[in-house]
Nucleic acid binder design. Structure first.
Length: 340
DNA sequence: TAACCGTGGCG
DNA sequence: TCGCCAAGGTT
């Protein structure tokens, strides 16, 4: 079992020799930029985030710019990145920073964690990277490294396992060079201690790793118990008129909250009146499959089928490639593209 | 506690 | 091709 001090030294030394130091959000102490990167990186890989991060900063260079933006603008720049509650919370939090914190990003872990969308680990990361505080993080990378190195068994979704991981994370996090240490742990998990086929020959902790010693790498960390994925089937009503298409803003909570979609109906045996069936497809979410049957329809207000749906309609001039500044889910964008 | 919330890459 | 899951947080 590693002593915390030796562990820290090995990890920081690894960072100085092999760590990532030139990611777009590194080399700045701007808490806004660090916060933005941490939110975008939640459950999302680095390569996916980079172009979104650049676009977002070009449009909103400061937290005040973000606070003053419309929600459609914000959702537009987030379109395709997924987990859209992150964008809604980001916008809400920017307004909080502007109003309640007078534009100055909060500097204590507790105050940072009070922002919507910022949990314990993200707050720890921001406090360490932006303000050099000795705060611990516990993302998927750190969990994997600690679970293997110390033989912490079970799925991290279980409270007892999560508690043990946090205790170990707190114990191992140094009071000095915390930012380097935190970055090093994420680099180790992302580059060396990968989920499958870890590069143990490159790992500074391999001489004292529980999983390696016990030949239990595949068993650590514990996996989430898997369950059956339900399937939901819907119609998407595509109403074209004068080179425009009718879209509808989805409610703020639930899937694709705050984004614009085609009017949607649960599939029934009898399809609503339509001109033409387009190719159906299945969009796979992490927790269910969505079968979509797009239907070209005439005017919606004459058919009666739109009765339950509030016609907060919006015309998108897609035929001229003039995409409006609104948020669109990826499969909606694909259907729109296919119409051209 | 467990379900919910997106998308893309990888083995 | 398909299951898995990634710099998690909220309800």
């Amino acid at each position: 079992m590693w002593q915390a001090k030796d562990f820290q030294q090995k990890v920081i030394n690894y960072y100085r020799q092999h760590g990532r130091k030139h990611l777009p959000w590194q080399g700045t102490k701007d808490a806004y930029r660090i916060w933005l990167s941490e939110i975008m990186l939640q459950q999302t890989q680095v390569a996916t985030v980079i172009p979104y991060y650049q676009n977002f900063l070009d449009k909103f260079p400061t937290v005040t710019d973000l606070a003053e933006a419309s929600s459609d603008e914000v959702m537009h720049l987030w379109s395709g990145l997924g987990y859209y509650s992150r964008a809604r919370n980001l916008h809400k939090a920017a307004k909080m920073v502007a109003e309640e914190f007078n534009g100055d990003f909060p500097q204590t872990q507790e105050a940072i964690e009070s922002l919507p969308g910022v949990g314990r680990s993200t707050a720890g990361a921001i406090a360490a990277f932006a303000f050099d505080q000795p705060t611990a993080i516990l993302d998927g990378n750190v969990k994997r490294v600690l679970a293997r190195c110390y033989g912490i068994e079970g799925w991290a979704g279980k409270a007892s396992v999560l508690k043990a991981l946090w205790q170990r994370a707190e114990k191992n996090t140094p009071a000095q060079d915390t930012a380097q240490y935190n970055q090093a742990m994420m680099d180790l998990g992302a580059v060396v201690c990968t989920r499958s086929k870890p590069r143990c020959d490159q790992c500074p902790l391999s001489e004292n790793c529980y999983a390696l010693k016990q030949d239990a790498i595949a068993q650590l960390p514990g996996k989430k118990p898997k369950k059956a994925r339900p399937k939901r089937s819907v119609y998407w009503l595509i109403c074209l008129e004068n080179e425009q298409v009718l879209l509808q803003k989805r409610p703020p909570s639930g899937i694709w909250g705050g984004l614009w979609c085609f009017p949607e109906l649960e599939q029934t045996e009898q399809a609503p009146p339509h001109e033409q069936k387009l190719d159906s497809f299945i969009h796979k979410f992490s927790h269910y499959d969505l079968e979509v049957q797009p239907l070209l329809v005439k005017k919606l207000d004459n058919t009666g089928i739109m009765e339950p749906i509030e016609l907060e309609s919006f015309a998108l001039n897609f035929l001229q490639q003039k995409t409006a500044e609104i948020g669109l889910p990826t499969p909606v964008t694909k259907v729109l593209d296919s119409l051209n």
